[in-house]
Amino acid sequence: MIVVLPAADGHIGGVVVETGGNKMVLDKAYAGTKPGSGATTPIEMSQSEVERVFSSALAARPIPPKSYVLYFVSGSDELVADSRPALEAMLAELSARKAVEVVITGHTDTLGASDKNDRLSLDRAQAVKTQLKDRLAAQGVQSDSVTAVGRGERELLVKTPDQTAEPRNRRVEITVR
């Protein structure tokens, strides 16, 4: 059985299923198919059957990753006051998990060349990793479980044209997973 589940964030892209030379798209919650049944179009699976077949697999799902956005005073490693609660919430989230990894992702605005922004965002992420080393270690998260990533200007929080200074895009996102 293959069945699409309701997504917590409401986004259902779907699953393309190829079976026995036939191809179908399952793109609604509980749309499904049973390979070998000969069906060529999706059927709606009953929730009770899905729960019966998949209850153990569903119960074993990890806690989803959680992200926190932090802003720094321009040109410094000092958090803006508004971001302090997000940092504390991130640190608190660490203790809710049994095996924790932390991904620190730097983002820039579109000012400057995109390859320079890749470097800039990675440098910022690495600086934050160094800065948080002791506080993460105090929660049992050693540096080999912490990754610094630079996304440059690929993931703008606020869409802007190229060569636009936008402080809201210059941010660091910390994902706990």
């Binding site: 892209g13 399952l26 793109d27």
Partner: peptide, 10 residues
Amino acid sequence: ALLGVRGTEF
């Protein structure tokens, strides 16, 4: 079967 995933939960 072969599944091509467009997202997100299934």
